[in-house]
Amino acid sequence: MITSMKQDSQAGHVPAASTPAAPSAAPSTPPSNPSNGPRELPAFAVKDLNLFYGTHRAVQEVNLEIPNRSVTAIIGPSGCGKSTFLRTLNRMHELTPGAHHTGTILMHGEDLYRAGIDPTLVRRRVGMVFQKSNPFPTMTVAENVLVGLRLNGVKDKSLLRERLEQSLRMAALWDEVKDNLHKSGISLSGGQQQRLCIARALAVRPEILLMDEPCSALDPIATAKVEELIHEIKKEYTVVIVTHNMQQAARCSDRTAFFYMGKLIEYAETKAIFMNPTQPQTEAYVSGRFG
């Protein structure tokens, strides 16, 4: 529940976005496990969502439910509203001047946009990984991973050490950087930097992870590692991933949503989208006949 979101944050949940949100009330001890909200309610229930940039309607009348502990892929051509939609799920769009929305988004049954909800608290529970890796250039590998915790006042060294290793292991990066934790984050390769950003997002234990084309700049090996990571973390996290790579959507996700011109054209199990889509436009897009 959102009301418990504040309590959770005070108990130790910290900004989850790979670019951490502004610090707020200093937490004491972070909980060992994330709160994932009521199991019976979907991670997100989106109802009649419209998103405007000024007068331009970028997302139109979207209705969908994203189940807990699953991977949902969002596909569609450039400019179809995928990333915009993703950013409404943790209120990141509000950082864009002129952006506003209508409709409701319920996270585990609670309205994300209800009056009085602090957007930074939402972003603590809904982490985000961006297309381009963005480690803090002046920070070491370890500092990058722990920045969210430290910004929120976590000082317990054993906890920080534990969370550092856990997060880097979850991001499949530990073995590669364990001897170079004090090197600059930007000294890593592109694939390592992206996994570092994923580790940074995971370090604060979000409930949901949004990934906006996380592999678009990675080679096949780094991509495979990120995909393996997505597969692993879905046991504990709900993942929503925007991707242009059809095979990636097919490999990684449980459900797939196809967007076109701001509209949700089809949303179904990934197997159905790639084996037997009901909409001809979906078939044209996934089989590369679009355009």
């Binding site: 179904a268 159905a272 436009q281 044209a284 355009g291």
Partner: peptide
């Protein structure tokens, strides 16, 4: 959860010929 579909907006491009 069942499949959700919405008719595509007007102007959806015709199928593209591939090599």
């Amino acid at each position: 959860m069942t499949t959700q579909t919405t008719p595509a907006p007007a102007g959806f491009p015709p199928p593209m010929k591939r090599f």
